[in-house]
Amino acid sequence: MENIPESSSKGTKRRRDEEESGDGKTPSLELDLTFSDTLVALRIMRAQFPHIPKVSVEPFMLKSQLYSSVKDRTLVDRELETLRRDKVLRVFKLNTGQDDHAVMFLDDYINQIDRAVKRIEGEKGGENEVFGWFKTHVLDSKLETGIEHQELCSLLSLGGKVKDSHISLLINAGIITRQLIDPNMYWFAIPSIGSLLKGLSQGRKEVISLLSRRRYKEMMLASLEKKRLRMSPLDMRFHLRDLIGSGHLRTDQTPSGLIIRVSKD
């Protein structure tokens, strides 16, 4: 992770020390729910991304999770934009909801692309060159979440002669996806993330359902975060940050600790 700038916040080192000390257990979400700035939040959440057997996806975060962790949403948007323009990270539009966006550090995203390339190596022998063109010419100059077909071809052509089969290869590898409303536009995508996005949608419903069955539609955070989800490979911590940030859940401080409640419609 060479391109991730060091934060000057002392809290980063303190939290990292807590994570690495003792029995290796992650600190309670109640002690680690809010952060002073976006980069600190991203780095901690990256470190806490759940280990998921049989799924080869680099850690990613959701914009909604940042909204739950850094209270000033305007600050989050501004700092995300700066980090994106500085090529520290990429932002991706997800198909799980109108406002759903994933965030991944650029180094991790390039590693994810390399994994996708290895997986299909040999299938299209001489055409795998397009992945190098994509990393060198497209990622370096196109920082937005989407790209138009003609612009994609123009940037790729800086590496060599572009064929339709090159574009198909990028789509099949999961690196770009066609936008449904405009077939001439593509979203940049995270390869191999499909099963996790399904789990994200199902896990959201499962957490809301779990709380909705309680008498007051609430539960102590300390108890809730110990629950295991049946429908999602992502852990409870991941989902709670997402649902709090998106406004589906809210937190209230009590003498006994933090309570998580279903937000009233």
Rank of each mutant, 00 (worst) to 15 (best):
E2R: 15
I4V: 15
S9N: 08
T12Q: 12
R14Y: 11
R14H: 03
R15P: 13
D17V: 05
D17Y: 03
E30K: 15
L31K: 10
T34A: 04
S36H: 09
D37W: 03
D37R: 02
L39P: 09
L42G: 06
P50F: 05
K54T: 07
S56M: 13
F60L: 09
L66N: 09
Y67H: 01
S69Y: 09
K71S: 12
D72W: 11
T74V: 07
L75A: 10
L80N: 01
L83M: 08
V91L: 10
F92G: 00
F92Q: 08
T96A: 06
G97S: 15
V103Y: 09
F105K: 15
Y109I: 05
Q112W: 08
I113P: 00
I113A: 10
G122A: 15
E127L: 04
N128R: 04
N128H: 03
W133T: 05
L139G: 06
D140P: 09
S141P: 04
G146W: 00
E148A: 12
E148W: 04
S154V: 09
L156D: 08
L156I: 07
V162P: 15
S165K: 03
I167P: 06
I167Q: 05
S168P: 02
L169T: 05
N172R: 11
N172K: 05
I175V: 12
L180F: 01
L180T: 14
L180K: 09
I181D: 05
Y186E: 02
F188A: 02
P191N: 10
P191F: 02
G194Q: 04
G199M: 11
S201C: 08
Q202F: 00
R204F: 01
V207G: 07
V207C: 14
L211C: 05
L211H: 07
R215E: 15
Y216I: 07
S223V: 01
L224D: 11
K227F: 14
K227Y: 15
R228D: 01
L234I: 03
M236T: 09
R241A: 12
D242M: 01
I244P: 00
G247E: 12
H248K: 13
H248M: 12
T251A: 06
D252K: 04
T254R: 05
T254Y: 03
I259R: 09
V262D: 08
S263G: 08
S263F: 14
K264W: 07
